[in-house]
Design a protein around this nucleic acid. Structure first.
Lengths: 198, 198
DNA sequence: AAATATAATAGACTATAGTCTCTGAGATTA
DNA sequence: TAATCTCAGAGACTATAGTCTATTATATTT
């Protein structure tokens, strides 16, 4: 890496860390791009050279969630015996991570961004680890007769994803005023019962 | 009503109908406030005198959905015998209305607005007819033993509302690329099964 | 080493939602 | 009917995300 590339990367890093720090302090909507470039002694040109938009910085952070799925959650699921147990533990860890590490304002901002038709969607990317993990769990559960087999595992993932989104959306508009960890079981158990074979 | 009040109302009506017409033609985000006031030969002052924001006009239209619940849906539910049948028919009519009459872009815009923390929320208003109707149905179903009784009817409404929202949110980010009427049964049946007594 | 190319950055500019203040038509009071 | 009041509306102004273009430091080529 030559000098120029080093400077470029340094600029990007500076903007990214400063922006995320400010977002955490004051909330996404109360931080302006002008403030970010002023605090980092850079410029509009630099900012938009590195990020497609103000929202884009957020995505950068949110994408970490997928590392979390693969690195933190997946290993913990291995020892569990039933697909149902895996699914429930997965959901628990996901909710815990979102509630404790991401927080509702980040979540809200992502959900808002996804509704913006001009920008590319993160949720619609079918290669997200989230979907792969869920699909694997459902396949396993269908094979051993735990889950219903009249729907494909893909459809089961779609159904569950919609419920998860509804739950997180509700949490977002309610500004994190209830606990994901505490309340998720009530909702997900209802859905999981509907997904099980009987 | 004196002359002045008449003129005021006429201005509001002109702005409202023109705005909604434009939104239908080009989509919410492609219509500017400047365009609306130009087409109606009014001004920023007039516009913001009548509406709190550009989004606000949308709400005006969306609130119709509650009239629809009360006037169109409610009477049709009366003759049905089981609470389950009422619930399923209610959901069918709601999905049909949203898909055919509101459309995905209106829906998307409302969902986006709800995530905006500066504005007051429509979804969180607990007096919406939607919630009353659902609560009534659940109460009836709990009384006659169709639905589970370990959760209050209020909680059942919360659970179902979250699922409905997840479904409509998904429809919104997918730009209406699937049919609410066709697909709602798959998801809601899963949830309703989880809500029924067994 | 000089000439040329490239691409990151600076910052002026644009688009657009929303605010602020002043004005005048029409209502009210005397 | 003259004087006063009021509030809807006009439109200049502000805030802020994002675009466009010129500059210049660094890299590459000759």
């Amino acid at each position: 890496m030559n000098l120029r590339q080093q400077k470029t990367m340094e600029t990007k890093r500076k903007i990214l860390t400063t922006a995320i720090k400010l977002f955490n302090e004051k909330g996404f909507s109360h931080v302006t791009v002008d403030e970010i470039i002023e605090k980092t002694s850079t410029s509009k040109g630099a900012f938009y050279n590195h990020f497609k938009s103000k929202h884009d910085i957020f995505l950068e952070k949110f994408k970490e969630i997928d590392h979390f799925y693969v690195n933190e959650i997946l290993p913990k699921l291995k020892p569990l015996k039933t697909a149902e147990a895996k699914l429930k533990y997965f959901l628990y860890l996901e909710m815990e991570y979102i509630e404790k590490d991401l927080g509702w304002d980040v979540t809200r901002t992502i959900y808002e961004q996804e509704l913006n038709t001009e920008r590319e969607s993160f949720f619609l990317d079918e290669n997200r680890p989230l979907y792969h993990i869920l699909k694997k769990i459902f396949e396993e559960g269908q094979k051993n007769g735990e889950f219903r087999q009249d729907l494909t595992s893909e459809r089961l993932v779609v159904m569950l994803s919609r419920v998860i989104r509804g739950f997180l959306y509700d949490w977002s508009i309610k500004k994190g005023s209830f606990s994901l960890v505490d309340e998720h079981i009530e909702l997900f158990n209802i859905v999981i019962e509907g997904l099980m074979k009987r």
